[in-house]
Write a protein that binds this DNA or RNA. Sequence first.
DNA 1: GAGCACTGC
Length: 682
Amino acid sequence: MADLDLDSSFIPALHKPSALLPIAKHRESLLYLVETYPVTIVIGQTGSGKSTQIPQFLEKAGWCSDGKIIGVTQSLADVTCQPRRVAATTVALRVADEVGCEIGKEVGYSIRFEDVTSSSTKVKFLTDALLIREALADPLLSRYSVIMVDEAHERSISTDILLGLLKKIRKKRPELRIIVSSATIQAEEFFDFFTRGSGQETQKEQEGRRSSDIVTIVSLEGRTYPIDILYLESPTEDYVDKAVSTVFDIHTQEGEGDILVFLTGREEIDNAIRAVADRALQLDGRHGPLQPLPLYAGLSTEQQMYVFDKPPEGTRKVVFSTNIAEASVTIDGIVHVIDCGFVKLRAYNPKTGIETLTTTPISKASASQRAGRAGRTKAGKCYRLYTEDAYQKLPETNPPEIQRSNLASTVLQLKALGIDNVVRFDFLSAPPAELMSKALELLYSLGALDEYAKLTHPLGSRMAELAVEPMMAKTLLSAPQFNCLSEMLTIAAMTSLGGNVWFYHDGERNRMESSRRKFAAEEGDHLTLLNVYQTFITKGKKEARFCHEHHLNYKSMTRAMSIRAQLKRYLERFNIKIDETLSSNQASSAVDNSRKAENIRRCLTSGYFAHAARMQPDGTYRNVEGGTVLHAHPNSLMFNRKADWVIFHEVMETGEKTYIRDITKIEKNWLVEYAPEFYKLS
DNA sequence: GAGCACTGC
């Protein structure tokens, strides 16, 4: 049995008055450290109360007295049973409650579609992406006296960028206080980052030191519930099968307590649930029933909520989950965790421009986090479906997102923040040079950067402000020339849902497909998505019932409305006129419709020329370079239709094949017409 | 004829 490190300790923070939280006794020393050191790294357990208590300590100690405010960027999912956007709001609500104020007054929050703050707000909870956006208008974030970056060890791109910005801001605003909350393993990395000079030359000198003039580390320990870690004696060939048999071993041999099983994706989860249901029929009467439940992001909200319900008396709940339950969603009552040891990780190949989604061994940090899910209320057990030897060979952490992603929007944002030399930006972990140059090339070809790699105006700066990826931003901004802005707003909103438009239960695939055919447009997926949205708004009256009848994801459709409205506000701010009367005119003639459709296809080509492909006689596609075999994704209308040239929204390699998604037919000569330089070079 | 882990503006 291996040690569990520190992540195994949990306390049920939600049910304790704040004075009893372990953090309360650290109050004085925390305030002293923040006063003394510009940067404080806080190592704290889930439930240590750091995200709710520290901002209150600071406020009471006078950090807002000169009209400045405290900002807390959040991924607060750990204290509630909600995905993090919702969680951010509930934690803000909880702090407001503790302070005794109305939400939006002294304590407020700001997330993408909701700004609940006012001129009296002193403590503001917000997402890190939103704080970066604030820096576009206020580069020194001068409103803030303290900024706390919570759960920084998750290392999202926006967290990494924010930390780089804060380090830069600190040079011009030495009075700014930065608090970084982190898991144990990564604390040293943050310490080194803030201690070293921008050129990294002092790193060696800092070895072994835990404190400098600038940075300090403080650890807030919580009470520990022990978790037994069990390994396999020999590796398994089929972890889904092994997970199912482990569920039955636990059920027949262990005391009460629900089970959480980590698998990698929907298919595995559906299979495992079927297998449990089958085998449960053979259970003898001595054991209570099992209730297997799925949990992954693609489920509707109601389906996700089942996992939080208490099972009937005597029934054992078994939740089969993706990585969503590792950090974003917390389920109470879990005593047993089964960890398959794998996760699907996204990576981006700058040479081919293709994203891959590959099943990869998890890191030790993930393994520890997963195990910790077993012991929130009492001692638990974690069954690792791999050997102890395999565990020892796992990497400490996975590479951060910024080193394995398409950086086009990140680079564009940095440029808009006034960081001209993006390659020399002080990254926590520098991305590979190929990722940077690929991003710069794309932004240049889109016209967002000029030949000196300077941000262009107004095109580049507007693209940076729009909350969609650069290719879609360019498409939107060229839409007025093609007289299709209203339609393109809808298409931008629908494509940014990322494939979650359609919804069906296990075994309902065919019915979903026939629903989808009712909205089909000859020209391809983008026009089909436009039909879906327009029908939802008009005939469907924006109702959930319409979505259920047509196998649409209601949550996604309402989200599309919000995104569309937000994009529209941005364009209005740019003084771009949007004519909404044409698009809702259902009585237009067939000729008008096909002309409109052609304009939309041309407009899409003006932004997505780099995502062009040609169909081969065998029905597969080749991209412009010709190298890669691309398949229309089975969810695409073009999956079994003929085409010549097409553009696509997204390309992704999963398993053996490379799929393109959201595909629309175009004409070859449009590519040369709208991207002459790009296609001259190719 | 076969399938997208998860956030976020």
